[in-house]
Simulated scan of single mutants.
Amino acid sequence: MRKTVWMVPLVGAAGVAAAWRARSGSRPGGRPDGRWLTVTVNRPVAEVGTEEKPPPPLDRFGDSVDVRIRPAPGDRGTELAVRPAGPAPEGTSSSLPARLAGEDPRQELRLALREAKALLEAGEVLRPDAPPTTRPTPAGKLIGLLDRRSGGEGVL
């Protein structure tokens, strides 16, 4: 009876994971199909660029990305969206373990999209000039590790 009680949550978790994977359009390897990475920029469409000539630093990717620029809903600026143009190389995935290990193929694209938003809105990419604390603490070391693993994106 005890084994049955412990098996129910495990089977339930496996079912939820399978349903999430099917709903999100992931392949068995974990790479999402055709997902756009999108930000809203507080600028008119004419100031953001065109799909043939995206804003820097997205322009360095050239033909390896698809770019979509259109007015944001509710007349609130411009929606800037990018995604890899071709299939991901074999053996790479965009899963959480790959992101934590710094091996996510879309990580560089996410960072470039955030930098493009900052350049268009503020004119520069703002970075902190000093660490938030002067002495190392256990929690600070953990946060530093997670920050390094996030690939400069600021999110895991």
Rank of each mutant, 00 (worst) to 15 (best):
47 E>R: 07
86 G>C: 00
106 R>G: 00
48 V>G: 08
9 P>Q: 10
151 G>D: 10
16 V>T: 10
27 R>Y: 08
57 P>D: 10
96 L>M: 13
143 I>M: 12
51 E>L: 05
50 T>I: 08
117 K>T: 08
36 W>L: 15
88 A>L: 03
52 E>C: 00
54 P>E: 13
10 L>D: 00
130 A>F: 06
64 S>K: 13
98 A>T: 04
153 E>G: 07
66 D>R: 14
79 E>W: 04
74 G>F: 12
35 R>A: 14
134 T>I: 01
30 G>M: 12
72 A>M: 07
17 A>G: 11
32 P>K: 04
84 P>G: 05
154 G>A: 04
81 A>Y: 04
75 D>C: 00
117 K>R: 15
21 R>N: 09
90 E>I: 01
118 A>S: 14
21 R>E: 08
9 P>W: 10
136 P>C: 02
25 G>C: 06
4 T>S: 08
156 L>K: 02
110 R>P: 01
8 V>L: 15
152 G>M: 04
47 E>A: 15
146 L>P: 03
130 A>Y: 04
22 A>C: 01
25 G>P: 06
154 G>I: 01
97 P>M: 11
147 D>C: 02
18 A>P: 00
77 G>Y: 06
33 D>C: 07
108 E>W: 00
127 R>S: 05
24 S>M: 13
156 L>T: 05
122 A>G: 02
27 R>Q: 14
27 R>K: 12
56 P>I: 05
17 A>V: 12
155 V>M: 04
3 K>I: 09
155 V>I: 06
4 T>M: 05
96 L>A: 13
65 V>C: 09
97 P>I: 11
95 S>C: 08
64 S>N: 06
52 E>S: 15
29 G>F: 00
100 L>C: 02
70 R>T: 14
8 V>K: 07
48 V>T: 10
1 M>Q: 07
73 P>Q: 13
87 P>Y: 02
28 P>E: 07
34 G>A: 07
136 P>S: 04
135 R>C: 00
113 L>S: 01
150 S>C: 13
129 D>E: 06
62 G>W: 09
112 A>P: 09
72 A>H: 06
135 R>L: 12
64 S>W: 03
117 K>N: 03
22 A>S: 10
1 M>H: 07
154 G>M: 02
39 V>E: 10
114 R>E: 08
9 P>D: 11
103 E>F: 00
147 D>L: 03
11 V>C: 13
109 L>H: 05
89 P>E: 15
5 V>R: 15
87 P>N: 01
119 L>K: 07
136 P>G: 02
97 P>T: 12
34 G>I: 01
153 E>Q: 08
45 V>D: 02
145 L>T: 14
6 W>C: 07
126 L>N: 04
9 P>E: 11
109 L>E: 06
47 E>Q: 12
48 V>M: 09
61 F>V: 10
124 E>P: 01
48 V>L: 09
99 R>Y: 04
152 G>K: 03
73 P>A: 15
40 T>N: 05
72 A>Y: 05
64 S>R: 14
24 S>F: 10
60 R>H: 12
147 D>G: 02
23 R>M: 10
152 G>F: 01
40 T>V: 15
114 R>N: 08
41 V>Q: 07
15 G>Q: 08
48 V>H: 09
146 L>K: 02
5 V>G: 00
82 V>H: 04
65 V>Q: 11
